[in-house]
Design a protein around this nucleic acid. Structure first.
Lengths: 159, 159
DNA sequence: AGTGAAAAACAATGGCG
DNA sequence: CGCCATTGTTTTTCACT
């Protein structure tokens, strides 16, 4: 899983598109769809995996089925922009399992978190007991997703 | 892929946790880690897939490696809350490949989109040519992710 | 860079305790 | 649910172009 820049040609892109769509397709099936033999698909896949272009394969699980009903976006502003504060906050969010994603943003809110929890009570606990007590956190503003229209996380790549 | 509610026990949760982490693990490997035989893992997986608890398997691709350098969160307020407008907007966001996620939010912004594009120019084109021209859209506020601290999209499930 | 065929690994199923 | 055996698929490697 080294992270060189790697040459990606049209076939590679087609393979990536197929596997992003459905990673359980066999090399044979992928090959049929893009006009390549299974053995070549296998080799190219290995190359893409080793180069870190494919970061991992994962099962996409229905959150509701495992009792996770609430998705929220939480904007967090930090107290001061010291290196210390920023670093400690990073370590915190990376360690919190409720945080699916954390981004540093342009604009008024410094950080944007995507959070998944069981219910509103759990969200409240998360914000009040995990986020707000942290020294670096100045304030927090959360928006709850009442409905999810799209959640496929597919990258739109040109071919 | 039917969507009944399904009984999920401790073993099922452990299987899901394993496959969310790395879907390329074999039934044998999953079984070893959780103390279950490969054949039982196979049967439980099938059940979880058919029940729609596992929605799909996918390759997680490094966006930068395929030329997608910009992630943005775009808040969209609609003009009026008519059924018509809302429905047409939904159809729009679902059809736009740059939109990875779209949620209906509580709070001032009606919709929150997670968008991935090649560069800032492409983001500008996306907002000005795809979003703003739509009748239902009143205004748009976008924040660009300058850095991504965490992006694993793992569900935190209790076991 | 590619194909096709052989070898090795794996998944899926059924029967039994 | 474990264990075992069987069957069909799939991945991976090799020889060749």
């Amino acid at each position: 899983m080294v992270h060189d820049m790697v040459e990606i040609d049209g076939f590679d892109r087609k393979i990536l598109a197929q596997l992003q769509e459905d990673a359980s397709r066999t090399n044979q099936q992928v090959g049929e769809r893009i006009g390549l033999s299974a053995s070549q698909v296998s080799r190219r896949r290995q190359r893409l995996e080793e180069a870190g272009v494919v970061r991992r394969y994962r099962a996409d699980i229905d959150p509701a089925a495992v009792g996770l009903a609430v998705v929220a976006f939480v904007g967090v502003a930090l107290n001061a922009h010291s290196r210390q504060n920023a670093r400690r906050f990073r370590d915190l969010v990376r360690s919190l399992p409720e945080v699916q994603e954390a981004h540093v943003l342009t604009g008024d809110m410094d950080y944007m978190l995507k959070v998944v929890v069981a219910d509103l009570a759990a969200l409240s606990v998360f914000i009040n007991d995990e986020l707000l007590p942290h020294d670096a956190v100045r304030n927090v503003r959360s928006s709850i997703a009442m409905e999810t229209l799209k959640d496929d996380n597919r990258l739109p790549f040109a071919m």
